[in-house]
Amino acid sequence: MKKEEFTYRVEAIRGQLYKTAMLYLGSHAQAVDALDEAIYKGLCGYKKLRKQEFFTTWMTRILINECNNELRRRKRTCPLEELPETAVEEFDSLPLKEALQKLPKELKDVVVLRYFSGFTLAETAELLKIPQGTAATRQRKALQVLRLELGEEEAYEQK
């Protein structure tokens, strides 16, 4: 892959990458920072990517690693409050944006990639390195907790 192709491909998925970062971090400035960092790392490593058909998942994985780094850093300075998935009433009382941020991380990861970033269930499982069945269970739970009724159609619309 040449640099021009890298640029072209990143341009094509920029919306998806930005949304993913934004939903992971909940802040525009931090999302742009994470995107910057992921693109920089992508630039350092694209020549070593052997299977170029996986470019999108590869870039997304770099981005997720960056977002997780930021979340770990944030956890040290000002820990985020997560609610347990059983806290139904608390979730109901929050706007969707806040409710998503308070989801347990393993549920949030799945729902962000699946419905907001538009990955298939198989891709989501691959990105998070979890079995597809686990991804499906977490997806169901996350939608239940957020009281979202989203099907395949909504997921693919984001692509």
Binding site: K3, T7, V10, E11, R14, G15, L17, Y18, K19, M22, L23, H28, V32, L35, D36, I39, Y40, G42, L43, F116
Partner: peptide, 16 residues
């Protein structure tokens, strides 16, 4: 979110 997607040109230049 769609409306607020930033341009990545600047990110790519910064990265380079």
């Amino acid at each position: 979110l769609e409306e607020s997607v930033p341009e990545v040109d600047a990110s790519i230049k910064r990265g380079c």
